[in-house]
Design a protein around this nucleic acid. Structure first.
Lengths: 346, 346
DNA sequence: GTGAAAGCGCTAACAT
DNA sequence: ATGTTAGCGCTTTCAC
């Protein structure tokens, strides 16, 4: 930063000199402080545009001590996943309405990166931080929190730290998705999910169990695969399930990439039209696949918006106890989830 | 920024006092300057960790005048589009290898936003800026450029400004896509594209024309739709084309969202298996649609990486003339583009 | 309403 | 190898 290249950048002092006023007056004009006479405002603006002056927000940030925020940090897992891309959009929109710059980075489910990037953002003295955490211990942030930097967590709760959190209604969404399958006559419902280390995965599994129990359907562990992380994992898991002596008549996939894997698996055994499928979390083109995929949609825009609003409330001094907020999910029926169970299996 | 909350943050002075050394020594330790004795390094580190000290990069940036960069800006159209999300990832990777923070924002094809966000980033004194421009006049950046801030443009060339640029091989990619259709017996090939105001759209159209001319196929204006921006636009355009007395036997869609619209259009008239389709720019799940969609794939990761590397070269003082770099495209055959023309039409 | 002086936290330039 | 002094560009504080 501050590479002094060719013609050095004009400073407030330069503008002040040209306009024949003090630096402070220029400062007031650029901060719209209203207590400056119109004639002076005009003079300052003229001088500034003649010099092509742009205020240096870095210097401004250094000295400023009033509460007005200037930057917030955002750590998400991966913008390539539309769920996180939408969170980014929502946070950016709110930040922009406050005139605040967003520093966004991808964590990639890497706890070490989470540490490193958080640290970098704190060194940049962001006024607050929104995190989709990867690690399973956020106690390392306690000190920053006490130093006055507010944190908000999205999608997954922080561990060993109290902070505002915004989550999807994972358990209920999952429950509704599985119940939807049960309502279509299914009693043998396969579960395809991420490892339980990941908190939403645990909740979605809980919803699956509750739906079965509510309908007095026995849990069959051969129909449950809980350690899948990639599309391929899910595809294989589904193929394997379908090759069992008594295969499931429906599948619930607990994450969007796993859902895609499940689609591929079902196609590979040519059962995409006979086995029902409901996925958790929507994805682009789900409606164009054949059959179109029924999903429990999350609302990443709402999650990001709410998270950002909570953060700004904290930045503005809200000191009420940290809270967890739940954003509801929505069942979108498109075909794959409405395939009826064969009569024999009812 | 700098909200002085509860326990004020420790400064270098505090660490220096506790360690019994000068501030400059602490500075040297935190900048890994090597000319500090091991014993002092240890003392400083101990004091810093006792105070939970984190360096203030804002202050550091303000004073520093050596060439070492600290932040770069990135303005893309929309992270929700995977093409731009991948550019973001690639730029971030390169920046991280330099220890540089990325400030990324979405422009949304809005020239006014482009101005505003660029201005904000310049005010933050980013060390360089990577832009996918929306407006049709970037001359407003000439002053910044002369002040020493390097700019690199991606996907679309800047207008009324000279700067490094990285583009896809739009014309050639388009040419190859259309030639692929011709090789499958097609002579009536519909074109579905974005408005010519958008430079890649012009180039892709040019590739389409050249492919036809090369094969001595007459241009039929009824088969050409060049003012489409949304999925729906493309869908309607395709439906309309297919309802003509002599409809096309193949369609070339010049952008990924338009390709999706074309798929929907063909399905609506139940011709997705009889009309060939090639799309420009790949998209997730293209391979899962039925028929799977043949595309000319761009390489957003390569574009982003090259763009970032060019920028860092400039930041490090490279003053050679600005250059335009072309990243090649790749034909990926998946089925929709290999549908043969009916014999009658050959 | 406007200005002068001091200072934010750090690093450059120059000692020693 | 370490310290001292000055100053980055702005805003605060307080004076007028």
């Amino acid at each position: 930063m501050q590479r002094d290249q060719n013609p050095k950048r004009p400073t407030m002092g330069d503008v002040a000199a040209l306009a024949g006023v003090s630096r402070k007056t220029v400062s007031r004009v650029f901060n719209s402080e209203a207590t400056v006479g119109e004639d002076l405002v005009a003079k300052v603006r003229l001088a500034a545009s003649q010099l092509n002056y742009k205020m240096n927000l870095v210097a401004s940030d250094l000295r400023r001590s009033n509460g007005r925020p200037s930057t917030i940090g955002l750590l998400i897992q991966d913008v390539s996943n539309e769920f996180f891309a939408n969170i980014f959009r929502a946070v950016e929109d709110v930040a922009e309405s406050y005139g605040v710059t967003v520093l966004a980075s991808n964590i990639d489910e890497d706890a070490e990166r989470e540490h490193r990037l958080t640290s970098q953002l704190v060194e940049r003295r962001v006024d607050g931080l929104i995190i989709v955490p990867s690690g399973n211990d956020q106690s390392y942030l306690a000190h920053e929190q006490r130093s006055g930097t507010p944190f908000v967590f999205l999608d997954r709760p922080p561990q060993l730290l109290r902070a505002d959190t915004v989550l999807s209604d994972n358990e209920e969404g999952s429950f509704l998705g599985v119940r939807h399958l049960i309502e279509h006559g299914h009693r043998r419902i396969g579960f395809v999910g991420e490892p339980p280390a990941y908190s939403p995965a645990r909740q979605r599994y809980r919803g699956y169990l509750r739906a079965l129990q509510t309908s007095n359907i026995p849990i069959e562990t051969q129909l449950i695969s809980r350690d899948l992380t990639t599309e391929d994992d899910a595809q294989q898991a589904v193929i394997e399930m379908m090759s069992r002596s008594v295969p499931p008549t429906a599948i619930f996939a607990a994450q969007n990439r796993l859902t895609i894997g499940a689609v591929k698996g079902l196609r590979e055994v040519s059962m995409e039209y006979s086995i029902a499928l409901v996925g958790f979390d929507d994805f682009q083109l789900a409606y164009l696949l054949q059959p179109a995929v029924t999903v429990i949609a999350q609302d990443p825009l709402a999650i990001g918006k709410l998270g950002a609003e909570l953060l700004f409330r904290r930045i503005q001094g809200d000191a009420s106890p940290a809270n967890t907020h739940i954003v509801s999910t929505l069942l979108i029926t498109r075909g794959s989830g409405e395939i009826m169970a064969p009569p024999a299996h009812r």
